[in-house]
Design a protein around this nucleic acid. Structure first.
Lengths: 244, 244
DNA sequence: GACGCCTAATTGTAAGACAATTATAATCGG
DNA sequence: CCGATTATAATTGTCTTACAATTAGGCGTC
């Protein structure tokens, strides 16, 4: 059990403070000095906590104005997590499983919302167009993440979208060694998915998206074919959901 | 253009340092004092940066050992996600959608693993037994979370499990006002789900689990049948302490 | 009333000191 | 000679104090 340092405790207490008082972005927090007194620690410890939270955009600090609750955005995180090499945490298979669950999980809602609001389709289409025009690999990498994040965000299930943002960052390193012909190939796949969704056929879209994501698994299998025989056809799960 | 603070600069430099030297998790970094001298700032600024990166698990610090590159884990990041959740205050409907996606998403894997390892069934069964013996509501609350967390963890998809842990914690407040007869009712549901999974029928289990979770939605609908589509800032109860 | 200056509150940075922790070396017992 | 224990020292963790930098809000002048 890793013993929590004082600044980490302060961060946790600050979190509870924000939750208990039901503070929302923009609301004021006590000053560093007041927090120090209230929590019974020195200003240094408070600062280490607020600074750390400030890095993430959770709190916002300015001289004279003091501290306030900031707007949490996943973009801040990605900035610090852009070290793809440091993220070798979960094996590829588990990340792919995770992606399939999270991304396909929201498709029904995406289809429903598309039916009511055509602009959702337009946005996704625009991102995919941008992807078509991409020439440099970095452009594609960025666009690819953007597309998949927007897809889940379009479900309107924001908690799922937030988690998906993280997963996409984690996954980034596996996209790195993807040949150009390979990713040019994926773009019509995107198109098919959103077109199918516009028709309301979210179950078909689920199959398509699953296959799209599983491409990474196949590639991995090929790379280490020497290992045990495995069922490459995969095609495994379409998660049957939606009980009415 | 937001002016970067010194500690943020240090964080950026540290990031470049890690990238340029191609450091991997576990590799040693200079000490705080050395970094301070090298970057021409005080130890305080270095500390604020390393602390912030430490929150994300990007650097790891220990007395005498010094600083080293850490490995970012989903556990670590859920701390950040928990802030996101806390500030966002998602409505019940979205949390239910999230739960259904995450919990049912792992069922296929659970069934597969159960077939190979019977102890998975036993564990789930044990938790459900404990649930049956629960008399106090607090026991039930704890057991309920434990069951659903174990269920997802049994899929072996750890990233999904980590996220699910978080969702369960935030869902707790909605379980709070659940009558005893109501939750006694849910226990056979659990049993049916794990039994079905043992048979390998994960699609049936998906339907069952979806219904099980949707009970909360129905109840919600009933509660505010009078009040129309109002977001109705949820009242009451928060947890007091941080979830580790 | 509008504009610019002043002041004070608050964060930002620094230096020094000491406590807490722990890897490594030294010591001791067998 | 080896294992366990103790002592040492290096490093992070925390506190205190001090001061610089920034800026919101008040004051005064026109």
């Amino acid at each position: 059990m890793p013993k929590l340092s004082k600044s980490e405790l302060v961060a946790a207490k600050l979190r509870n403070y924000i939750i208990n008082k039901r503070l929302k972005p923009g609301d004021r927090l006590p000053t560093e000095g007041e927090l120090a007194e209230q929590f019974g620690v020195s200003r240094v410890s408070v600062r280490e906590a607020t600074k750390a939270l400030g890095f993430l955009g959770i709190v916002d600090a300015a001289p004279r104005r003091g501290l306030s609750v900031g707007k949490v955005s996943m973009k801040r995180l990605s900035r610090y997590l852009s070290f793809h090499f440091a993220l070798a945490d979960y094996p590829l298979d588990e990340l792919i499983d995770t992606r399939i669950v999270v991304e396909t999980g929201g498709l029904r809602q995406v289809a429903e919302r598309m039916a009511k609001d055509p602009s959702i389709y337009e946005e996704l289409n625009a991102v995919n167009d941008k992807l078509r025009r991409a020439t440099k690999k970095s452009e594609w990498l960025q666009g690819e993440v953007q597309f998949h994040c927007l897809l889940v965000a379009s479900s309107g299930v924001r908690a799922l979208a937030a988690f998906n943002d993280l997963v996409q960052v984690f996954f980034q390193k596996f996209r790195a060694d993807f040949s150009r012909s390979r990713w040019k190939n994926g773009i019509p796949g995107h198109q098919e998915i959103i077109d199918t969704l516009r028709e309301g056929e979210y179950q078909t879209a689920t199959t398509l998206l699953t296959t799209h994501i599983n491409v990474h698994r196949d590639r991995d299998k090929i790379l280490k074919r020497k290992s045990k025989k495995s069922d490459a056809a995969s095609a495994s799960a379409l998660n049957g959901r939606s009980p009415a």
